[in-house]
Nucleic acid binder design. Structure first.
Lengths: 208, 208
DNA sequence: CTGCAATTTTGCAGTCTCTGCATCTTTAGG
DNA sequence: CCTAAAGATGCAGAGACTGCAAAATTGCAG
């Protein structure tokens, strides 16, 4: 059903994107961001430097953006979120929808370890990574607002939920990396969400 | 007691930083990031382009970094946090310490409105702004770990708390900007923290 | 297969960011 | 005043990134 096996053109396109992204991650993880030029990356990926910029708006993006279809993915996440039965609370529903995408961290462990290494070691990459793609933020806030029946322009809740969950995801990725990916990222995410939805009580003592 | 009135040298230095930061914010808010060059900013601030880079590592930083003494400020925040009596829960203590710095948003309303406008309209600026200064993250996690008696290398809690609070702060700033700064940022922050520490229950209904 | 149209890839020129280094000014303090 | 330290500049150069037009590929119909 999915995987419509697009034509050769599309396949090559995705392949090039992937080649650029993975070599970028690898090289930068090895040498550090400023010891790698766009020329290095494109050469290693077998395309011209100019082509590099046909795929990524900046060197940083090649390291941070894992998928060529980021837009569609987030779209699917939103749909899944909106399709979740009302019995499930909004935060839970959102997290569940997020998990699908998040699973690829455990699946592509090596690549993600390299990516996190690069990100942790470079402030510029760190900020790019921490932020969700600028364009996907608004639709997600919109979706949360719709499900909760709130006004995205007036109520703080939708924005707050998205931002804090984003923060949780980042915390999880950091921890995951510090453990060399030896703990399931998904499990860590579950743990984080429990804490978060419990109001961040101090592990040792009382809450609030 | 404070305000030791440093020498002329120091005063000029802060003044230049301030001039560069405010003109950068103003120009970028007016024309957009890529319609403003470093030369424009430095010219308007009355210094050479080379000097600009003595103050900021990048054009973006001039728009995003409000204070020349960012490091000391975060240091003070940490100290205040650690000095808070144990009766106050860790999350509360941290938020209270943060508030001191956060107050300047309401105090310098105009400048912050310009800054938020620039940030909202430009993805690059957005990511830089959303992330806390890379160097201040570790000390803060360290501080949280110390107060809670947790191991920052092993426990998820310190990182999670910092990340989610950071997310909350961002959400608040966005809302504040969308309301044209007509609502007190501090009040919004309080509201956000209440929601967060209550486990993000859906405003209309049940929680968790 | 063949040829045409739509896509991609490239090369090139040019602008702008950012850095290292040497030099010139200004301030701090005798 | 005079000198040393700190700061401001100018200059040259590496690299990121963009617009544009030419060249190579791929999709498809005939």
């Amino acid at each position: 059903m999915p995987e419509p096996v697009k034509g050769l053109r599309e396949r090559k396109r995705l392949e090039t994107h992937r080649a650029l992204a993975t070599t970028a991650v690898r090289l930068v993880a090895e040498r550090g961001l400023d010891q790698v030029t766009v020329e290095d990356i494109s050469a290693a990926a077998g395309v011209s430097p100019r082509t590099f910029f046909n795929y990524f708006p900046s060197k940083e993006d090649a390291v941070v953006i894992a998928h060529a279809d980021a837009a569609e993915r987030s779209q699917r996440t939103i749909e899944k979120f909106l399709a979740t039965p009302k019995e499930v609370s909004t935060p839970r529903a959102f997290v569940d929808a997020l998990k699908e995408d998040f699973a690829q961290v455990d699946e592509n462990r090596e690549e993600w370890l390299g990516r996190m290494k690069a990100i942790q070691e470079n402030a510029t990459l760190h900020s790019r990574a921490v932020t969700m793609n600028h364009d996907t933020i608004a639709p997600m806030i919109e979706a949360i607002a719709r499900r909760t029946g709130l006004d995205p322009k007036t109520d703080l809740y939708p924005t707050l939920l998205l931002s804090t969950l984003g923060g949780a995801v980042n915390a999880v990725l950091m921890r995951w990396y510090q453990h060399d990916g030896r703990i399931s990222a998904i499990d860590l995410l579950d743990e984080a969400v429990e804490m978060l939805l419990a109001g961040l009580p101090e592990p040792g003592g009382r809450a609030r």
